[in-house]
Design a protein around this nucleic acid. Structure first.
Lengths: 342, 342
DNA sequence: AATTTTACCGAAAACGTTTTCGAAATGATC
DNA sequence: GATCATTTCGAAAACGTTTTCGGTAAAATT
């Protein structure tokens, strides 16, 4: 029941372990005859190389790490799917960890992965990560690192993102185009880059179109497990504080859906009284009532692109070639639905 | 930049590798003085044991494999979260693979994980898996295996499930209780055990309450990526073929949501004309209109339970103790919402 | 003072593979 | 028949750790 080793094959054929190893990997200096013999016996014995030994010897694990803030999340689970699919094609396995939006956990997990000697790491930052030493360490240890979605601009590595600022601009401009004059914004937490960029896109769209920016119209949502509740809460607040608002651009779909739910209960008509644009294009957004206009964020593509880039860097590293960090920006598009249909 | 090894520490302190190793693991036969010395140097050099070498030597990887039909899925992503969380507590990492509901892929992935020498495997079956040799192989190779949700009754291993039959019975009985007389069922594919069990629960609830079972009221949904469309399609079909139906028990929420969407468009009132009960309690079900009565399926708990059981078996295996396969059945409950509120 | 016990350390084997390098055997060339 | 090139193989080192088994020296016991 013990797994079969090279040595056993060698003994049965009365040849050396070296020759068996070479035969299996088609080295030129072993005769066709012995190659055939070895391969046949190996397959009948169902020989599988011991990954630990191979890893130890070759110093690569054919395994990558993935750190993600939350797993139960339409966008992120799509990214996971993309990464796994692409990795499988290249014979890589993926170890997944969830940072729970916590910097401390994220740091520990990076260490875990480094100790495990993964060949590279893909990650999206936790919301409260402000210090990036743990990331710089990864790169200094010659371990390829690719960040996606929630990135740290300051860290020198490859990144796969969308143009959040432009997407937010488009979303806000769409509200302006359909006639909104007083546009609020439900933004994400203060730290994450994409939350900042979406806010900046919103503000620029306003000022570019002659609408003065009013800070009191910006509400902050600590997006996490209870985004939905945050949406409801802020919608309620908005109805009290700014009855004149006729459009909202919301940082993420789940919050938007919470807001819609609150407005529905309050009898506020969407889009007649308030038009709403979300962000991410969760499946849910297409089936609620009214369906939600939103920005499509290509999770699957991002995952695939992230792995492809990581793979490139792993290869370059092996060949001691210089590696070129890429900033890959994927296209987004506005999906028009009932929540802005005039 | 090369990672520091035991040998380097040993050289710097002029002691043997053996002593260093023992010192770090608090063996009793090394003096407190040298222990302190070694530990201090190890921490200043930031020594991290080479996982490959440890694995090779100890024959365990502190890694488990997880094969799951689909990742972008409310229930399954919750299971993943549960497994990862629990595994992290015990110092285990999780390699995740997606079978895409394909038996062929599933088989390959099992092999991959076995070659990688994971310490155990947790999995939920692909829809079209009928042959279980690949699973028996796992067990025969003394590798702990825990199945959850979509299991093979015939395979002798631990299982974490819900009582699908009872849950379906409850769901159907609820429809009867609110006065439905003609109750249809949208079932899942023919093979999966839980799809069969839910059907059986449905049928038993009918006959137990004096309603004769009518096979023409059972529609099959090939649940996969396009469950939503399947729901719409079958709802349309049902409206044509059986105008007298006043209740439906549907195999899974996403299909139910598709059906609701179709009924809404057709002007069929829910629950007045047709009452609907789904299955799984996706978050989405609570926010659509009308909100969906459903069976809560505890994904997070299942994940945690599955890992706990696997961990037990791994420990027993290490100590050469006998392992006892468990069948863990988690509680479900009916969540009443608008789709059955009379 | 002889013996036993205790405390501490290290040599060496083992895990299973990969790869370098040299050796032996065969064939080709002059 | 001597030399050289080619083909085929294997010994050995290496990857970094863990663990068994002795061994030495000091302390404790007679």
């Amino acid at each position: 029941m013990k797994p079969v080793t090279l040595r056993e094959i060698a003994n049965k054929l009365n040849i050396s372990v070296t020759t068996v190893s070479k035969a299996l990997k088609d080295y030129p200096d072993v005769s066709p005859k012995t190659k055939a013999l070895v391969k046949e016996l190996a397959s009948t014995l169902n020989y599988k190389p011991n990954a630990f030994a191979v890893n130890l010897r070759t110093r690569e694990s054919k395994t990558i790490g993935l750190i993600i803030p939350v797993i139960v999340h339409h966008f992120f689970s799509n990214v996971i799917k993309g990464i796994i699919a692409q990795a499988e094609k290249k014979g890589y396995l993926v170890i997944i960890l969830q940072s729970n939006e916590s910097y401390e956990l994220e740091k520990k997990q990076i260490e875990l992965l480094m100790n495990q000697r993964v060949d590279g790491i893909i990650m999206s930052l936790a919301n409260d990560t402000v210090d990036f030493k743990h990331l710089v360490d990864v790169i200094n240890n010659d371990k390829p690192l690719v960040m996606f979605d929630k990135i740290a601009k300051i860290v020198n590595c490859s990144k796969v993102i969308i143009d959040d600022r432009k997407a937010a601009y488009d979303a806000t401009k769409h509200l302006i185009d359909i006639g909104c004059k007083r546009i609020a914004h439900f933004r994400g937490s203060l730290l994450p880059q994409n939350s900042i960029d979406r806010f900046l896109g919103y503000r620029k769209a306003l000022t570019d179109h002659g609408i003065s920016y009013d800070p009191s119209l910006v509400y902050i949502c600590e997006c996490d497990e209870k985004s939905f509740e945050e949406g409801k809460k802020n919608a309620l607040l908005l109805m009290k504080e700014h009855k004149d608002v006729d459009g909202i651009f919301i940082n993420t779909d789940l919050v938007a859906i919470g807001a819609i739910s609150e407005f529905n209960e309050a009898g506020v008509k969407i889009p007649e009284d308030i038009a709403i644009v979300g962000f991410s294009n969760w499946f849910m957004s297409s089936i609620i009532s009214p369906s939600l206009t939103t920005i499509d964020q290509p999770g699957l593509k991002m995952g695939k692109a992230a792995f492809k880039q990581l793979y490139k860097e792993i290869q370059s590293m092996k060949k001691n070639e210089p590696i070129y960090y890429q900033q890959i920006v994927l296209k987004t598009k506005l999906i028009e639905r009932e929540s802005t249909r005039v």
